[in-house]
Simulated assay, not measured.
Amino acid sequence: MIRRTITPRPDWQARVEAEGLVWHSADGRPYWDESACYVFTPDQVAEIETASAELYRLFLAAGQAVVDSDVLLDRFAIPRPFHAAIRAAWEAEPPALNIGRFDLGYDGRTPPKLFEFNCDTPTALLEAAVVQWTWKETVFPHAGRCNGLHEALVAKWADIAPYLPATVHVAHVEDDAREDSVTAAYLRDTARAGGVETVPLLIDAICWDHDRRCFVDADDRRIAACWKLYPWEWLAQEAFAPMLLDSLSQGILWMEPVWKMIWSNKAILPVLWELFPGHPNLLPASFAIPAGDAVAKPLLSREGANVSIRRGGTILAEREGEYGDEGYVYQSLYPLPEPAAGCFPVIGSWMVDGTPAGIGIREDGLITGNSARFVPHIVEG
C-alpha cells in the first residue's frame, strides 16, 4: 500500500460538483483530496475483502449474542422499550439495503484490524461509489479498482423492490455542510436506478397523525417506508419514540432496521473480542480500562468525538464532543501507518448485505474526525 503524490485535475472542483459532491472543501482545504492517491496490489485488495467478509460473519454471531441478552442490551445503553423491537426485527429480517462501512487499520503487510462498523448512518458514500471511480477513469484509465459499490446498491434496491410500498421516503437532517443531503440524494439516485420510487424528507418535517396512527410528511402523505440518515439512538430519545415503536409494530418499514442499534454501537467491540479472542482481524477490547496502550471510545460517538488515545498512562491525543455519558469501551491501540507527515489513513471497507463492495480511504491525524480528507485509490500489479 503506497501513497503516491500526484497533480490534481485543474478543474476538479467543477467535476466533483457535477457528480453531486458539493461538499468537497472545508475551512479552505479540500475534503476530496486528489493531490495524492493510494496504490494497492490485487493481493492486498483480496486481503481486505476477505477480512471484511469474515468480520461480517463475526458480527452476525455477536449480534445474536446481544439479542439473546437483556444484560448486554442494557450495557449497550439501548432503552428497554426498544429491546423487543430489536429482537423482532432481528428475527424477521425486514427488507433493507443492509449497507455499512468497516473502518479498518491496514499497513499492507499484516492483517486488517477492525476499528468499528458504521452501519446505521454511514456517510462518505457518494465519494467512494462514484467520485473516485470517475477520477480513476480520467486519471488512471488502465488501473484496476476496488469499487463495485454503486452497482451493488442498485442491485440491492432492485432485489428488495418487490417487498417495498409504492413510495419510499428518504429522510435526513437539514445540514449546512450538505454532507447528509448529498448522501440522501445519492441513495435516491441508486433507488431510482433499482426501480424504486422515492421522495425526499427532512427529519424535522416528520409528524405523527394521532387519528390515523401513522407518521406523515409535510404534505400529509403517510410514511409507509423510510430510509433515514438519522441514527436510531437519536430517534429513541425523541419525544415521538413511543409512536415510533407503535409504527414498528404496525409493520411500517424503517431502514436501516432497528437492530442496527447493536452493530453500530461501540459496545459490540468487547463482545466480539470475548467471543473471538485472538482473532487476527480484531483488536483486544473491553469495558474496563486496560493496563496497556488503548483508545477510549464512547459507545455512541460519531466522527471521532470524545475519543482519546492513551499511551503509557498519558493522553496522546483526544477530541472534544458531547458524548460519553452512555459509557466507554477501550480498544487496544493500533499503530496506523504514516506514509506522509501527519497523514494516517483509515480504510473504509463497504459492505452491501454481507458482501464486500469497495473501499474508500480517509486521512486525518491520529484520530479520524470530521476534518478527515477523502483520498482516492487505484489497484496496480
Rank of each mutant, 00 (worst) to 15 (best):
I289G: 05
E318A: 10
G251I: 01
S301N: 14
W254R: 03
N306A: 09
L244D: 13
A291D: 15
W232F: 10
V271W: 03
E238V: 05
M243I: 09
K260W: 00
G321N: 07
G321I: 08
V295W: 02
K260N: 02
D293V: 05
P284C: 12
M255R: 01
I315Y: 14
K260R: 00
L316T: 09
E320A: 12
W263M: 13
A317Y: 02
G251L: 04
L282Q: 01
G278A: 08
E238F: 06
G304W: 08
F287Q: 07
W259N: 10
L253S: 07
K297P: 15
V271R: 02
L299A: 13
G251D: 00
I268Q: 07
W273N: 03
S308D: 07
P280K: 07
P277F: 00
I315V: 14
I309S: 11
L269H: 10
L244T: 15
L235R: 06
I309G: 08
N306F: 09
V271H: 02
W232M: 11
G321D: 05
A317R: 11
F287C: 15
P257G: 00
S264I: 05
P298E: 07
P270H: 01
N281K: 00
A267H: 12
L282W: 00
W232Y: 11
N265K: 01
V258Y: 14
W254Y: 14
E320P: 07
A291V: 15
A236C: 14
A285K: 01
A288T: 15
A291C: 14
A285S: 15
V271F: 02
H279L: 10
G313S: 09
D246W: 10
Q250F: 08
L244K: 13
L300Y: 13
N265P: 10
A239N: 06
P270S: 11
P280Y: 07
E233R: 15
S249P: 14
G251Y: 01
W254S: 11
G292S: 13
M255T: 05
M255A: 01
L244Q: 13
I262V: 12
F240M: 14
A294P: 12
A317H: 13
L235S: 12
S249N: 03
P270L: 10
P277Q: 02
N265F: 04
N306W: 09
F240E: 01
L253E: 07
I289K: 11
R302D: 09
H279E: 02
L269Y: 12
I315R: 09
E233A: 04
V295A: 13
N281R: 07
V307S: 12
P277V: 02
G304H: 01
E318D: 07
W263F: 12
V295P: 06
M261W: 01
S286F: 03
G278S: 00
N265L: 03
M255W: 05
L272W: 05
W273C: 01
W259Y: 04
L283A: 13
A305F: 12
G312P: 06
A267P: 13
Q237E: 10
W259R: 05
R311C: 11
L282C: 02
P270G: 08
R310G: 06
E233S: 08
S286H: 07
W234T: 10
W232Q: 11
W259M: 07
V307A: 12
K297C: 15
F276Q: 00
V258I: 15
K266D: 04
G312W: 04
